[in-house]
């Protein structure tokens, strides 16, 4: 339900953003778009860290609001995890993590070409069971993300960004008490390389 709402929000806001007049010193609608690859390094005693191996994922975001050096928007991540320990996780091939989130950035210029951008975000997530390519069920969750990126600005409109984020998820789960955190949480350091156009 949450992901459909965010996709609709994307479709509604995207064309609207381009039509707005851009002024840096007041709150305005100013668009940017990013797309890139991410790789999560899972840690802790969790199902994703102990029973899966991470694969490359994709991320995308749409900047919507801007005030001075602050900006905000919405984004999504898709990451596949291969099931490695079937005795611990179950007899299926992979888990897919989807997240749909709101975020806020602060853009701190270091030089003419390079800027540092701390970021914080929160949103809906789900961990999907995939078997033989088919969706078999999903755990709903909530995601918190905090991190920073270094942007290399090729020109006024294009940048390449290297990001590092701490990402925490809390999933709904019903299981034996000692396994609640194992299947109900995940922690990762997510590194990424992302192209931004604005």
């Amino acid at each position: 339900m949450g992901n459909k709402f965010l996709i609709l929000l994307f479709l509604f806001i995207f064309p609207f953003c381009f039509s707005q007049e851009k002024k840096d010193n007041e709150l305005n609608l100013k668009t940017s778009f990013s797309i890139g690859f991410i790789y999560p390094i899972e840690f802790g005693s969790t199902a994703l860290a102990k029973g899966h191996s991470s694969n490359l994922g994709v991320t995308s975001s749409l900047g919507i609001l801007k005030y001075s050096n602050f900006s905000g928007g919405i984004g999504l991540d898709y990451i596949f995890y291969s099931v490695e320990d079937k005795q611990l996780i179950g007899n299926y091939g992979s888990s897919k993590h989807n997240s749909y989130f709101f975020y806020f950035n602060y853009d701190y210029p270091i030089s003419k070409k390079i800027s540092l951008t701390p970021s914080i975000g929160y949103g809906y997530s789900e961990l999907v069971i995939k078997k033989s390519g088919k969706r078999r069920g999903a755990q709903d969750g909530k995601e918190f993300r905090l991190g920073t990126s270094i942007n290399y600005n090729f020109d006024k409109h294009n940048a390449l960004c290297f990001s590092i984020l701490y990402v925490n998820n809390k999933y709904d789960v019903k299981t034996e008490e000692t396994l609640e955190d194992f299947f109900g949480k995940s922690n990762s350091i997510q590194i990424g390389i992302i192209y931004i156009t604005k």
Partner: peptide
């Protein structure tokens, strides 16, 4: 039809 899972329930 494939067998649907209640993914939020993990059995031991």
């Amino acid at each position: 039809c494939t067998i649907p899972y209640d993914a939020e329930t993990r059995l031991v």
